[in-house]
Design a protein around this nucleic acid. Structure first.
Lengths: 222, 222
DNA sequence: GCCATAGTCTTCGTATACGATTTCGTACTC
DNA sequence: GAGTACGAAATCGTATACGAAGACTATGGC
């Protein structure tokens, strides 16, 4: 990584704190329910509490942590209904983003996506839920990153972050869904490739995600 | 002891600052492009800069202000593309919220909505864009407030706040759209009343909003 | 007269300090 | 022995202070 001397932006302490805490939440160092103590984090990062406070509040706004007045912050997650809400929201947002993005997705992008999907298919044999989930994110990123509306794109990213924070490599719980998911990916690519209507693409992308949610719900209710 | 309303805690300075600044943005005291100087706001509110800083950052996360490092904060808005993005996002989110909310909307709600719409129709004669916009928000609120997914509901509220901040009583620019809008409201109520499918309701709600956007675009491009 | 440069001034960024609030532990009473 | 009350420790909330970065202005050279 290029901290290329002078060219590197010093990055404010707030940013550093934000990135550091977010990374630890996403990678699981701070698991859901973990108590985030301002002073401790500040010391760990070698900064004062003020920037850390700001970072925590930003993470709160994104829904990665919950904050109670005079009590402190804890890493959000765990709650299954929270997972449900997040998935449902993401299904809507991501569906829209994918549809808006589709006209801007070129042949090269399709090829890349297909390569990722092939990797996912390989992954099905000796199944690794974490790797599969990572590839899944790569795949969908290719499809929605061209979305011309920055607000929607931002919401999609927030949704993915929340899911990551919830530590729900969903496929860990419903491995059977993985196979079907790969097939749906191919179908989705076909729709985009043939220039299908925005409605069709949106519906397909949305159903793709809500099907995963349904699989999870069916699993956990049994 | 009992949580009597009177004994309500004074609400943190951060909250006060947040509410105060937000109110001034929404009511137009701070118009788009206005330079928000931390020290000045802090003095006005009789607090220190730290809570104000936090408030500004929260508003930034909501998209009501933009913030540049070492430069300062300014009230967001003005930019027509920003308006476009916000409307498009809201059309998607509000459409989904309305559809999810529909099964929970009772006869009493329908009646209230119809009353509001009647007022809007009256309003058409001696047209007051600001009042019309306010009623419009009331109308839609009735339809989406029952949305069971709090995330989506939150996103809808953020969208409306952004629109308010942009000061675009859209109907000021496209008064001709108002009449059509009232009719679409009635159609939407009909769909909900007759228990139409979620797809139909979502599509109707979304089109209702994007039609307003299209009218605005057609107007401004001419 | 115009552009470049230096100096100042405003405003943000962060550290430190202190007061406020909550929680936990301990001792005391019934 | 259980419950309550008091006190200490931990943690958050906010004020103040100082250093740094950007922007304005004035002055000098071309």
């Amino acid at each position: 990584m290029a901290e290329t001397a002078a060219a590197a932006r010093p990055a404010s302490k707030s940013e550093q704190a934000y990135a550091a805490v977010k990374a630890r939440i996403v990678d699981g160092t701070y698991s859901p329910g973990y108590r985030l103590v301002l002073a401790k984090i500040a010391e760990d990062l070698g900064v004062s509490v003020v920037p850390v406070r700001e970072a925590i509040r930003r993470l709160e706004a994104e829904g990665l942590v919950t904050f109670e007045r005079n009590i402190g912050a804890t890493v959000a997650g765990i709650d299954p209904t929270e997972y449900l809400y997040t998935m449902q929201t993401l299904s809507i947002i991501e569906g829209a983003a994918t549809a808006l993005s589709a006209p801007l997705v070129g042949a090269a992008d399709i090829a890349r996506a297909r390569a990722v999907n092939a990797e996912m298919r390989n992954c099905l044999e000796h199944f690794d839920p974490v790797r599969f989930t990572a590839l899944n994110q790569d795949f969908h990123s290719i499809l929605f990153e061209h979305c011309p509306n920055p607000h929607i794109l931002d919401l999609v990213h927030r949704g993915w972050n929340r899911l990551a924070a919830l530590r729900s490599s969903t496929f860990r719980f419903v491995p059977g869904r993985a196979h079907q998911s790969v097939d749906e990916h191919e179908a989705l690519l076909g729709l985009i490739e043939t220039g299908a209507g925005a409605d069709a693409i949106e519906k397909a992308a949305r159903l793709h995600r809500s099907a995963t949610l349904d699989a999870y719900l069916a699993q956990s209710h049994s």
